[in-house]
Design a protein around this nucleic acid. Sequence first.
DNA 1: CTTCATGATTGCTACTCGAAATCAAATCTT
DNA 2: AAGATTTGATTTCGAGTAGCAATCATGAAG
Lengths: 192, 192
Amino acid sequence: MKVSPEAMEAAHLIDRLERLARAGEQAGGLNPAQWEALRYLSRANRFSRTPAALAEYFNSTRGTVSRTLASLEEKGYVTRSASRRDGRSIELSLTGAGEQAVKHDPLIAIAKHIDAATGGSLVDVLQRLRQTLRRAIAYNGGRAFGACYTCRHFRAHMRPRSATPHHCGLLDEPLSETDSRAICVEQEPATA
Amino acid sequence: MKVSPEAMEAAHLIDRLERLARAGEQAGGLNPAQWEALRYLSRANRFSRTPAALAEYFNSTRGTVSRTLASLEEKGYVTRSASRRDGRSIELSLTGAGEQAVKHDPLIAIAKHIDAATGGSLVDVLQRLRQTLRRAIAYNGGRAFGACYTCRHFRAHMRPRSATPHHCGLLDEPLSETDSRAICVEQEPATA
DNA sequence: CTTCATGATTGCTACTCGAAATCAAATCTT
DNA sequence: AAGATTTGATTTCGAGTAGCAATCATGAAG
């Protein structure tokens, strides 16, 4: 199977872009893995903020993730608390400092460059990147980690007027509006 | 300064894509840094295949690069030889095994996914990625490392019919056709 | 010819990752 | 219900890496 030179160049460019991003990640005393964990935690719903989910998300091992989290906790960005739903499980949350740190995510610098370089019309680029990522993940046997509301277990508007109007059919849990937009380990595309 | 959600998503996608690529890079017993070095060496012209250039290319330190190269040499992918032009300098080359290894670059897998996901029309995506990278590099105070023939020191067709028809005005060195397409540390865009 | 800049390497230290072992809780089997 | 298996999290350990600083050699500049 052959690869087009264009695709190869794109892969190279992505690679280099990422390397630059990493260079910026030294800031704040956090390393790349720690930044990624922080990023993930800020965007994942409460069912997905566990060490195991984290490990699966950026296919690493639980041991490694555990140490990364220990660092983040030590730095005061993350707290761990026992899960009520599963006695073995740990729920992770960002502290105030953690939320604050995410606002200074070095990835934002890259995003700014993207904005500046493209002048707005990004829809098609995004479309392709998403497609590519989806394929790459599928190929590697990973899970998509999509947004909650796109999941086949998502039941919208079960409790109108409530603070948690939606519902997860898999976990049987009420969901707030914010929850429904977060990414979730359990997510399975509605169009199975 | 604000960032568009689209750009932010694109940055995220790139980040995740890269992480997947890294997962594949475990293969062959090479780590990401070593793959990048191999990649660079396979695409750089002979003036640019030095430890210093490498360090600048993926902004690292010379010490680190020196160690990476030691690993690669030990594994039989790279050889070092003294430069004739500068007694302090080392010229790096890929061995046969090195050339072979580059053919199995895990980045190729990503490129395939890009191909599969986009069905060919990549010009505009490429355009934007290039722009973005250029800006990001400039912002970080780095150098472009562009292709030789796009350089303002490039003198085309000085020796017609020769094996090295072109010429570098900066280093005052003859250049083959292949040289002219390689990336170069010294490259400065013609449109200064 | 002395001084300074540049290229490469090597100690050294700190850190990071991944594999395997361990322990606890949940789930499955029968 | 009891035992076996799976799953979640952590710890320990070893290999490898990165970055800093020091060192040494060569080249360039005054």
